[in-house]
Computed example of a mutant assay.
Amino acid sequence: MAMVKSPLGDAAQKITGETLQGALVDLLDLSLVGKQAHWNITGRHFKQVHEHLDEVVDLARQYADTVAERAVAIGVNPDGRVRTLADRTANPQLDAGYITDDKVVAAITDVLAQIITRFRERIAATEDADPVTQDLFIGLTAELEKQHWMFSVQH
């Protein structure tokens, strides 16, 4: 069995691996919450919000892959299994069924705000442990904050 030797020391690898795993859970769950809203949205602003949700889903999926690959690059196995997501997500979940566009906008704004808070914590946690991962988190947080802004102004 091949193993990836980490370029980080044990302590830095542990801290960075934990932050990457938390980020992976956040991003995979965001993509699922976004798709759930995308499929079930109703209301006057359906088309605009429906299409905007796809932007968030695409962003989350792209960065989930980047985060997972970074974990492997430092010798940590990412865990994106459904059970792991269900057990570890901190994101609020949408109700089942149709959801009006105003409730979708409010919910996605809230989910993004919570994820951004955790990403800012990850930025701080990786400052000394792994500046490369910190840089990844900084870029991703900027994109999440942009999406948060775009949703928040639709209230």
Rank of each mutant, 00 (worst) to 15 (best):
D95Y: 02
T117Y: 09
G34S: 14
A142G: 12
P7H: 08
D135K: 03
D95N: 13
L8M: 03
T42L: 02
Y98I: 10
R70E: 06
D54N: 13
I138N: 01
R44E: 05
S152L: 05
H38S: 07
L85V: 06
T100W: 03
R70V: 07
L53H: 11
V132R: 09
G22K: 15
A12V: 00
F46G: 01
I108V: 14
L53I: 06
D95W: 05
W149A: 13
M1L: 02
I74E: 00
A113T: 09
D65W: 04
R61S: 13
A23F: 13
L53Q: 00
S31L: 01
D101H: 02
Y98P: 10
F119Y: 15
G22F: 14
D29A: 00
F119T: 15
D87F: 01
A107F: 14
A60M: 13
T89D: 11
E127I: 06
H38D: 00
D65M: 11
Q62D: 10
Q114V: 11
K103A: 08
H38Q: 11
A60K: 00
A106V: 05
D95T: 12
D65E: 14
D135L: 02
G22E: 06
G139K: 07
E145P: 11
T133C: 03
T109W: 03
R81Q: 14
V56T: 08
T100K: 12
T126R: 05
A96D: 15
K14E: 15
V132P: 01
T133Q: 04
R81L: 13
N91P: 03
R122Q: 13
A64K: 01
A86F: 01
Q134H: 01
R122Y: 02
V25C: 10
E145D: 08
A96S: 10
K35F: 04
I74S: 01
Q114C: 04
K35S: 07
Q62G: 04
Q154I: 05
P92L: 13
G34A: 00
V104G: 12
L27W: 05
R83L: 11
A60C: 11
N77Y: 09
R118W: 03
G34M: 05
Y63T: 12
L94T: 12
L30A: 10
G9K: 12
R44K: 10
R118F: 09
K47C: 07
E51Q: 04
A12I: 04
A71W: 06
Q36A: 08
S6R: 03
A71K: 03
A71I: 05
V105F: 06
D128E: 08
T109P: 09
A37L: 10
A11Q: 12
V82W: 00
T141W: 03
P78E: 00
P131V: 14
H148F: 13
Q114G: 10
I138Q: 09
D54I: 08
A129Q: 10
K5L: 15
T89L: 08
D102F: 04
D29W: 05
I116T: 12
